[in-house]
Design a protein around this nucleic acid. Structure first.
Lengths: 195, 195
DNA sequence: GATACTATACCGGCTGGACGGTAAAGTAAT
DNA sequence: ATTACTTTACCGTCCAGCCGGTATAGTATC
């Protein structure tokens, strides 16, 4: 169970990560309902018994996804704090989901939260709070910080809307609208502290 | 052993709406996975056969929910256009989910979209577009209109996050922060175009 | 360095229940 | 008698989780 002491592990559990990846992908593409143990095992090229060796229950699998997401958020917050284009621009632009491991984990967590899994709801809430705090640290006006965070939420969920059909383009606004949006928010952020 | 007929429901179309209501509630509280035909029938006080008479497949039930949502959006857009507090304030404030039939239908549709149902994804997209259009009609700067719509999206999804646990308070910002937010957005909306 | 034992990693079959959907029959009003 | 609606009973499938077994690798003892 403990993840530490890798050096003492005889064989690296390749299956574990493969299962986690497959389960995450299923969540992103088809939501909680599509993410079954059988499908995850199949997607990972592992037998169901093998899957259940690493994750004895479905809840354990969910916890695994959430744990991985939390770790990725930690890393992202550090990147954001020292982003060359500034934290606000970085935050807003990175809120539209590309296909990084980070984004996939986030969308998977959101799916689980929407399905009502309490631990996922708690996780999303705390992550949102951490993001809000990070934005607040760089924006004087707390109302502006709130607005920026909410815009990030909106972009995030909108871009996470599409299931598996790659047919329609992303729900994200086009490039130049994003540029204008970022410009507006940066003007608000380090601009007029009052009327 | 069989369920005794405690009372007579004599309203012919009553079952249909009852089923729709129950299915919607299940979607909101537990997502796509929890919204099963059996649970919906039970929640509506109808046998499963009775449910399947009105909605021959699960897809038909989903379409029923989406159709009802679309009708409610039409009504809401008219209310918004002539809201006494102004469209922007109305839009932003009504984006945090209370427990109206309108909000429940919207959250249900969002759950279905997150689960990857194509018709639900299309519906959410078109509704979002209609809202954006309505905001644009009352806000000169299109970037500000986009920002306002995105903030609405953020508020909407955040407040729709909680499953069925009434324990934690809503994810919506407290009253006074909402006031400040609305004030900021209205200032942006009809205020300085500030190139 | 061979033997005996233990831990890790995985397989595949199984079960009981829940799922979406079907079929036939019953009831009430027209 | 037909129509509108509702019931009970049932089917095939899929689901989460369990269990017995296998194979490999490390460890300890002699």
């Amino acid at each position: 169970m403990p993840l530490a002491t890798i050096e003492h592990m005889s064989r690296p559990p390749a299956a574990r990560d493969a299962v986690l990846d497959a389960f995450e992908r299923l969540l992103v593409e088809g939501g909680d309902r599509a993410a079954t143990l059988d499908a995850a095992a199949r997607g990972a090229g592992v037998s169901k018994g093998g899957l259940l060796y690493h994750f004895p229950t479905r809840e354990a699998l969910i916890d695994g996804v959430l744990a991985r997401f939390s770790a990725l958020v930690d890393a992202d917050l550090e990147v954001m704090a020292s982003a060359p284009e500034g934290p606000v621009a970085y935050f807003v632009r990175s809120s539209v989901a590309s296909d990084t491991a980070f984004e996939r984990a986030g969308v998977a967590a959101a799916r689980l939260a929407q399905a009502g899994h309490p631990s996922a709801v708690r996780m999303i809430r705390s992550v949102r709070q951490r993001w809000l705090g990070a934005v607040r640290a760089h924006v004087a006006d707390p109302t502006v910080a709130l607005a920026i965070t909410l815009i990030g939420d909106g972009l995030y969920y909108d871009s996470a809307l599409h299931g598996d059909d790659a047919e329609t383009g992303l729900d994200a606004p086009p490039e130049h609208e994003m540029d204008d949006l970022v410009a507006l928010l940066e003007r608000l952020a380090d601009g007029s502290p009052r009327a």
